[in-house]
């Protein structure tokens, strides 16, 4: 199958224009080939925006109890029942309360996943990402700079900082200018730093972490040893 005809098949299946045989064919291909599955999911997500244009409607009263009873009915998706038949109706009745709770939890989880997915994926895409390396070339921290100069610093190894000393994060917004402090990592853990008054971070901007006296560098310029440094790159999104 050519790439072009595969793409067409995927698109027609997503739009609902494909017949049952074509849908089944694509599903088989996707089950066997992760690349096809990935392409299908990606194309599907591309059209998702159209689903979001539908009106938000409120579910009627009693809807969830109908769903719950639907779970007790025969499977609708063609699962073949086992030949050994065991009467589970009593167990099922006993389970229905738990099932109700579980279903409620699923609904809440799905909602949470959607909200989280939305908030994580949409507005906060970093403008630049820098991997900070130490002198041995090992990655010690990941720095994500957002356009509003919120900086996420994720430490990739436990730094050995003497007591009375603190890690300080620096950047050079202007290649030829002095380093500017983005903030301290007093807990020695990953943190989100915010700072006002800097231009949005750009690719090739230098980021580094140094060890400074407690309270931060007295000169407002890096004075201590460098734990790691790296140049920012623009992520491909």
């Amino acid at each position: 199958m050519t790439e072009r005809s595969l793409h067409l098949l995927i698109d027609e299946v997503i739009l609902g224009l494909a017949d049952d045989a074509e849908v089944a064919r694509l599903e088989t291909m996707a089950a066997q080939d992760p690349d096809v599955a990935f392409q299908l999911a990606r194309a599907r997500d591309g059209f998702l925006a159209l689903d979001e244009t539908a009106e938000t409607l409120v579910l009627p009263d009693g809807f969830w109890s109908r769903v719950e009873s639907g779970l007790d009915d025969a499977p609708v998706d063609g699962h073949v029942a086992s030949a050994e038949i065991v009467d589970l109706s009593t167990v099922r009745r006993a389970m229905s309360r738990w099932r109700g709770m579980a279903l409620g939890s699923i609904a809440a989880t799905v909602l949470l996943a959607l909200i989280l997915g939305w908030s994580v994926l949409t507005p906060v895409a970093p403008a630049v990402i820098a991997v900070l390396l130490n002198d041995d070339g090992e990655a010690i921290a990941l720095v994500e700079g957002r356009p509003d100069n919120t900086t996420l610093v994720t430490l990739l190894e436990q730094a050995e900082v003497p007591t009375e000393r603190v890690m300080q994060v620096w950047t050079k917004p202007d290649e030829d200018g002095p380093p500017v402090s983005l903030g301290l990592l007093p807990t020695g853990r990953s943190e989100t730093l915010t700072i006002d008054g800097l231009p949005a971070p750009h690719p090739q901007q230098l980021y580094e972490i140094t060890v400074e006296p407690a309270g931060g560098s007295p000169t407002d310029l890096p004075t201590g040893p460098i734990l790691g440094k790296g140049l920012a790159r623009k992520p491909v999104v």
Binding site: L40, R44, V67, G70, P75, D77, L114
Partner: peptide, 25 residues
């Protein structure tokens, strides 16, 4: 919607987050 939720419940094990969003699925 009711049938869909029942299917989501039954097929939850088939969902693979590396292959697209839960919402799309």
């Amino acid at each position: 919607v009711q049938e869909c939720l029942v299917l989501v419940w039954r097929r939850a094990d088939q969902f693979d987050p590396t292959r697209g969003s839960a919402k799309g699925w």
